[in-house]
Amino acid sequence: MSIPSTPGKTGRERLAEVKELEARQAKQRRMLALVAGVVTIAVLGVAILWFVSQGNKKKESESAEQQARNSQFIKTLTTIPAATYDKVGFGAATGVPSATDGPQDKVGDKPRVLYVGAEFCPFCAVERWSLVSALSRFGTWDGLGGAVSSPNEGAMSNIQTVTFKDATYTSKYIAFKGWETKDRMGEPLQTMSDADSTLVSKYNDRGSIPFVLIGGKSTTQGATWDGRSLPGMTNTEIAEQMADPNSAISKGAVGAANVYSAQICTLTGQQPANVCNSAGVKAAAAKLEVK
């Protein structure tokens, strides 16, 4: 290596300066290599954690889907004892139907309950528990299936529920139509009829789901009880807790079911009498805005 000439300095001094410069440069290179190594390790660590979390998320989602195929819970949900409804009353319901200014929505001479939601929607998953149990008091279901909400909703992911996609409902008092517009992953599922699309546009201009139109005279938008305890529970556990009037889930879900029942009774001439005159429905009716 040639040593640059520096006026006033000896060759020994100039050599010492060069060695010092080389030492500083070597140290800088080591520091840069160390920093690069640390950054690389950190990036790899984040990537590994992300892949692990995605793997765990996928396993949870697949497990939830497998559990939803078990439909034995539906019998429990649709046969909740009258004593449970009566003990819960209004319970911990968080909302009541709001009045509309439209004509009565009927199928023949029966007032109709219209539901619009989506399978991915966590609040739809919550609300179906109450709506199914309420309508079970006025008629019978066929084709209800287990379902689970989206795996991508944070703390409200993978909620066990039912779906109305293939369901039919029979009653001498009321009619029902349920639309599930998207599947669990947000892909298109069912296309509403033009008539129902018009009703939704009229009464739900923000497009909120779940949306329920009760006989054309009242609506609910969003969940009408707090279902934040549902994630992580099996569908069997939820149905069994609904049947227990002392559980928090029963107070919320069955309380909301009593509210739906009371609102429906205003359209059916308070029929059937054993439902509409029950203590639980009367307690909920006292809270109604639309009577």
Rank of each mutant, 00 (worst) to 15 (best):
M192S: 04
V275W: 04
V254R: 03
A93T: 09
A239D: 11
C276R: 07
D166H: 11
T163N: 10
F123Y: 13
R184L: 02
K19A: 01
T219D: 10
I174Q: 03
S133K: 04
P111E: 08
N235G: 15
S247W: 10
Y169E: 14
Q72Y: 07
G91E: 06
D166S: 13
K282P: 11
T168I: 11
G216V: 07
L144F: 06
V148S: 04
Y203F: 09
N70T: 13
C124H: 00
P245C: 07
R12Q: 11
I159W: 03
G269E: 13
L34V: 12
S2D: 12
S98D: 14
T234D: 14
A134V: 14
K19P: 02
K57M: 12
G255D: 10
G232I: 12
S61M: 08
D196S: 00
Q72I: 08
Q66M: 11
E13V: 12
T170A: 15
G269Q: 13
E180N: 01
G8L: 08
F211D: 03
G139S: 13
V46H: 05
S247T: 15
A283S: 13
D109W: 02
E187H: 08
G143A: 10
T219W: 00
G55H: 04
A16R: 02
G11R: 03
K19N: 01
A118N: 03
Q221V: 07
G215W: 03
K110P: 05
D86C: 01
I238Y: 10
P4S: 09
